[in-house]
Structure formats: C-alpha cells, structure tokens
C-alpha cells in the first residue's frame, strides 16, 4: 500500500468517525460566536415590561403584595424575593424572574428556558462533562489537525496541492492572518 492510499484512508475514516463531532462543534461554534451579555442561543429568554402604581414603599412589599403583583402577570407562584437595592425588588419564579423598581413602578418579567439541541451541543463544546470528555474532544481536535494535513494530499494533478489546492490553502491561511493583522498586531 502506498503512502497516498494510507493518507486517503486516514482522512476518510476519521472524517466518517468525527462526522457527529464536526456538526456539534460547528453548530455550537456559531452559537458561541453570537453570544450576548444576556446569554446565547442555547437559552430562550423572553422579557416583557410592565408598569404598576408607584411609588411603592419597601416595607409594603411582602408575600401578599408579591402574589398580587404576580397575579397581574398571570403568574401564580414564586420561589423567593429579595431587594438588590433600596429601590428594587427581585422576585424569582420557576424559570424566570420579575424585577420591579419601587420608585417608578417600572418592571420586567423575564422567562428563561433551555433551547433543546443547542443546549446539548453547547454543553459538550464548553467541555462541561470534563474528565473523559476532555480526552475524547482532545482526540477530535488532534484528528482535525491530522485531517487538515491529510486533506491536502487526497488528489493528484491540477486540482491537487500542486495548483488549485495550493491556491485555496494559501487563501484560507491569509484570511485569518489578515484579521490578526487588522485587529491584533496593528490595533
């Protein structure tokens, strides 16, 4: 068996084996690129504003007040509440919270839940399982490097690394270098 065939087999089999991992890391990579201060696409966050009669005295905020406030928001129960400041009460619901400014009566109700699939993908991408998953994902990362090199030598001729392959490979290296030049080295 010549080296080119070995190269092709390694590239092919690793490609098959890591198909699922490539999808997981690709999709969650996009999600991580678009993180915002309020979270990322692995969570669904819905926020609605409301206003109640104000000002509200801090001493007047008790369990019965909280329950009546929540009733107006179509919520029936809460976990706990506390005052992050003298002018604000935070009420925790199951899967969300209500924040209310006591001087203006302006508030918001925020409901947060996990987005299926994205959550699972991100769970793995963030290496939350730790331990064994670290080994497997290191193996995947190492294999990606190997697949990149073996991929260069799959084809012979003008579509191979001697012409078309070389042009595209160099172009693909120049793009991140250009970003580094613009945003890191000369910034």
């Amino acid at each position: 068996m010549n080296w080119r065939k070995i190269n092709r087999v390694i590239h092919r089999d690793l490609g098959y084996f890591f198909f699922g991992m490539s999808i997981i890391y690709g999709v969650s990579g996009i999600v991580l690129n678009h993180r915002s201060p309020r979270g990322d696409a692995s969570t669904i966050r819905r926020s609605e504003s409301f206003t109640v009669e104000a000002p509200i005295k801090k001493e007047a905020v008790d369990k019965s007040y909280v329950l009546s406030l929540l009733a107006g928001l179509n919520e029936t129960d809460f976990k706990q509440y506390y005052f992050p400041s003298e002018n604000e009460v935070m009420i925790y619901l199951t899967g969300g919270h209500v924040s209310l400014l006591l001087n203006t009566g302006e508030g918001s109700i925020v409901k947060v839940r996990n987005r299926p699939v994205f959550r699972e993908f991100n769970f793995l991408h963030y290496n939350k399982p730790k331990q064994l998953w670290t080994w497997f994902s290191d193996f995947f990362a190492g294999s990606l490097v190997l697949m990149a090199f073996t991929g260069l030598f799959i084809l012979k001729g003008k579509n191979g690394i001697k012409y078309r392959g070389a042009i595209l490979s160099i172009a693909g290296i120049l793009v991140p270098l250009a970003f580094l030049f613009l945003y890191l080295w000369t910034y």
Binding site: T43, F78, K79, Q80, Y82, F83, P84, S85, E86, I91, Y92, L93, T94, G95, H97, V112, N114, F123, Y126, K128, P129, K130, Q131
Partner: peptide, 28 residues
Amino acid sequence: VSSNPEKYLRINTGKSIPEFPIALEGST
C-alpha cells in the same frame, strides 16, 4: 445573596460539577 445588597458571593463550578442550571436562580 448577602445581607449587603452590593455584595455577592461568587461560586465557581469545580471539576465534579458540569454546570449550575439556570433553574437554581431564586433557590436556596
């Protein structure tokens, strides 16, 4: 939460905890 509304005690996950679920907000 602490008794001082401006101070919070930060807890980080250790090796044996994959993550803290969002549902813990408001729980003791």
